[in-house]
Design a protein around this nucleic acid. Structure first.
Lengths: 172, 172
DNA sequence: TTCGCCATGTAATAGGTTACATGATTGC
DNA sequence: GCAATCATGTAACCTATTACATGGCGAA
């Protein structure tokens, strides 16, 4: 239970999801990721195994191991884990996210705008449709955070579609 | 000179910049990154040392070592390197970039929208100002790619500012 | 002429990804 | 009751980041 851990975004996701679910195995977390933050922040499921272990060593989670059968590990927040999550949440992000857009990188280095645009438009439209699907669920549900995040995602996708369409037109 | 290399975005950046500069040391590349793609895709300069070495082993770069003094290594594209870059550029990105926005993650997990918004608005405005600064340079310059990428960056920042302002208002 | 900062580079570590492996379950 | 598929987990590898180290140059 060493005192210092580096809280990566992955850590925060694990902590955040455990706060919502109470107790979960890495596999449960994998499923939870898929229907929540996985829509805009993905990683390999293997990482949930190493990350839970890491956070446990750091004293932020506790681990309960099943007796018989698969001897699966169930994780939940410790008091310190809860505190770390609260602190993370209370610290506003002061940086802008980097664009880090492969398509933009290709544009930058001279890829053909029209070809890129048509691929990107299709991809962004698919993503937008995915978000619309989610939005059909009752918006009144608590907590609010996910819905607010969803709204940003939708706006972002719309704007990307507009932009790439404009590019395709201007490069015509 | 093994045949298969994984072309990461970092690789593409190295190849792309070497195409523009002809020959460069990792340190030159670092400087080049800073005034080009570094505006929307950053990484540690140490990576330029390992990446050039890796690409050299893979036969995509050749290495010329200074005789006296610092014995710095100068890199340039081989024919195969040029080909790899062309192929990379000709393959459109079919995925949408992930949002991967820390601020959105915090929103998702319940951070206070108003606090986040004010930090984000400030950060995005600073970024936008940075882009405007660049845009003062003669837009007519070739190649065009960077200018197109810049246009996207500007639109993106504007939209983020709009969105976060809207959020701050609605949460008022 | 020395002090301090920028230039330049390397080594160690951590974090993330890919690949693989085994137990469970379900349709045929 | 067997094959295919999904659930669940581990191990190996690779990339990226952090930390450190040395050389050179300009300003006091």
């Amino acid at each position: 239970m060493s005192n210092e851990v580096n809280l990566t975004p992955t850590s925060a996701i694990v902590l955040g999801l455990l706060e919502l679910t109470g107790e979960a195995t890495p596999y449960d977390l994998k499923q939870a990721v898929a229907i929540t933050v996985g829509h805009f922040w993905t990683f390999q499921h293997a990482q949930l195994y190493t990350e839970t272990e890491r956070l446990t060593k750091a004293g932020l989670l506790n681990e309960r191991r099943e007796e018989g059968g698969r001897r699966r590990k169930h994780y939940s927040l410790t008091a310190r884990g809860r505190k770390a999550l609260d602190e993370w949440r209370a610290t506003p992000a002061t940086e802008v996210p980097e664009l880090r857009d492969l398509a933009v990188l290709k544009l930058f280095f001279g890829a053909d705008p029209k070809e890129l645009a048509s691929a990107q438009i299709a991809a962004h439209e698919a993503k937008l449709a995915e978000y619309y699907e989610i939005r059909k669920i009752d918006q009144g549900l608590e907590p609010r955070g996910p819905w607010i995040a969803l709204a940003l995602g939708i706006d972002y996708e719309k704007q990307e579609i507009r932009w790439w369409k404009g590019l395709a037109d201007s490069a015509a």
